[in-house]
Simulated scan of single mutants.
Amino acid sequence: MSGNAGSRADGAAKGAGGSKGGIWTPANVVTVARIVLVPLWLLAAELAGAGAEGAAPGPALAVFAFFVVLSLTDKLDGYLARSRHEVTTFGKFLDPIADKLVVVVALCYLLEAGSVSSWVLLVVVAREFLVSGLRMVVASRGVVVAASNLGKWKTATTMVSISAILLARGLVGAPATFFWWFGQLLLVAAVVLTAWSGVDYFVKCRRYVTDAEEA
Score class of each variant (00 low, 15 high):
109 Y>D: 02
63 V>M: 07
130 L>C: 11
17 G>Q: 02
146 A>W: 05
73 T>W: 04
87 V>L: 05
125 V>R: 01
7 S>Y: 09
139 A>P: 12
191 V>I: 10
174 A>D: 15
44 A>F: 08
156 A>I: 06
17 G>I: 02
16 A>V: 05
181 W>P: 01
192 V>I: 15
168 A>N: 06
1 M>V: 07
90 F>C: 07
119 W>Q: 09
118 S>Q: 10
19 S>T: 06
166 L>Y: 08
184 Q>E: 14
107 L>K: 01
170 G>C: 05
186 L>V: 00
66 F>Q: 11
128 E>N: 12
85 H>K: 13
46 E>N: 14
105 V>Q: 02
39 P>G: 14
52 A>L: 13
151 G>A: 10
136 M>A: 15
70 L>S: 02
25 T>P: 11
34 R>S: 13
177 T>I: 11
22 G>D: 10
117 S>P: 01
172 V>I: 12
9 A>M: 04
18 G>I: 00
58 G>A: 15
19 S>W: 07
149 N>G: 14
68 V>F: 00
69 V>P: 07
129 F>W: 11
197 S>R: 00
135 R>F: 08
191 V>W: 00
65 A>Q: 04
110 L>Y: 02
25 T>G: 11
3 G>T: 15
20 K>G: 09
154 K>E: 06
170 G>R: 03
201 Y>F: 13
192 V>E: 06
149 N>H: 13
7 S>M: 14
144 V>F: 03
30 V>L: 13
134 L>D: 07
94 L>M: 15
135 R>A: 03
183 G>I: 00
101 L>N: 02
203 V>K: 08
35 I>P: 01
119 W>G: 12
165 I>R: 00
68 V>A: 11
18 G>T: 03
171 L>Y: 09
50 A>S: 12
209 V>Q: 12
200 D>E: 14
106 A>R: 05
106 A>M: 11
140 S>M: 12
187 L>D: 01
43 L>M: 07
104 V>T: 11
112 E>R: 15
201 Y>N: 10
192 V>K: 01
78 G>T: 05
16 A>S: 09
191 V>D: 00
16 A>M: 05
11 G>E: 10
44 A>R: 06
78 G>W: 02
130 L>I: 13
190 A>T: 00
91 G>T: 04
8 R>H: 14
26 P>Y: 04
96 P>Q: 13
145 V>S: 09
179 F>S: 03
25 T>K: 05
176 A>F: 12
173 G>I: 14
26 P>N: 08
